[in-house]
């Protein structure tokens, strides 16, 4: 199996607050990995370290055999190979739907306007937003915004797509439409790393589940292992708490 990203001994501190400790894990090509864990356990920080929105304090991130934390590495070139979907959507407010999906392709990938628009429309269609090309972000619902954000990331045709709680800022009735799109993407063989609180979704789509607790990976395994036969005390506690809450 081809490894896309391999993380070794990753750590991250904010001041003297150690948020991530000795993280080891990797994502293989075509795999869907869900990261679960209670709030504050470091899930977002891990994701943000993976695409260098936060600078890790230590460790290695191996991508195509190279440690991208080496000083000589071009972080922009690395970032464009990774897509990111944020909890708060973060669509570019000064661009309409099509513009959001086109601007990165044109400026970063140097695609022509025609080609970029063709690619953008293809992915907007995948997320069911191709009829809204003219809309401004402020004119869309949360679910629609998030689907456009997914299309924007897909338009860059990344090696891996990272999701940080993509449905947590949505009204309950819009969660379904976004999860449905993500499920469809998982089936196409896209490599995905997803931080989520949607346990049913994680159970159903992931190849592997990672449980984080207090800045470490406390348990890792197949969905069946984690949800049906968790070994760690903390994993069991967390699942009991979250599953009861649903």
């Amino acid at each position: 199996m081809e490894t896309v990203i391999d993380i070794q001994r990753l750590s991250k501190s904010f001041g003297n607050h150690e948020v991530l400790k000795d993280i080891h894990f990797s994502v293989n090509k075509g795999e869907v990995v869900c990261i679960i864990g209670s709030s504050g356990s470091g899930k977002s920080t891990l994701l943000r370290c993976v695409n260098l929105l936060e600078k890790p304090s230590g460790g290695k991130i191996i991508y195509h055999g190279e440690n991208i934390l080496d000083d000589k590495h071009d972080i922009h070139a690395y970032r464009r190979r990774l897509g990111m979907v944020f909890q708060q959507f973060n669509l570019f407010n000064n661009h309409n739907v099509l513009g959001n999906c086109v601007i990165g392709q044109m400026k970063v990938l140097k695609r022509s306007k025609e080609e970029a628009e063709k690619v953008a429309l293809k992915y907007l269609k995948v997320v069911g937003m191709d009829r809204f090309v003219n809309a401004k972000p402020r004119q869309l619902s949360g679910g629609q915004k998030q689907r456009v954000a997914i299309a924007r990331a897909l338009s860059m045709e990344p090696d891996v797509l990272l999701f940080d709680e993509p449905t947590s800022a949505l009204d309950p009735e819009m969660v379904g439409e976004v999860l449905k799109v993500m499920k469809e993407l998982a089936e196409t063989g896209l490599t995905m790393l997803i931080v989520t609180h949607e346990m049913e979704f994680a159970k159903e789509v992931s190849d592997r589940v990672v449980f984080m607790d207090k800045g470490v990976i406390a348990e890792e395994g197949s969905p069946d292992q984690i949800f049906n036969h968790p070994t760690g005390e903390r994993t069991r506690e967390f699942l009991k708490r979250t599953l009861r809450a649903i």
Binding site: L53, N90, L91, R152
Partner: peptide, 10 residues
Amino acid sequence: GQYEAAQAIG
């Protein structure tokens, strides 16, 4: 978030 989204696409 606007800045981060732009950085995230490279």
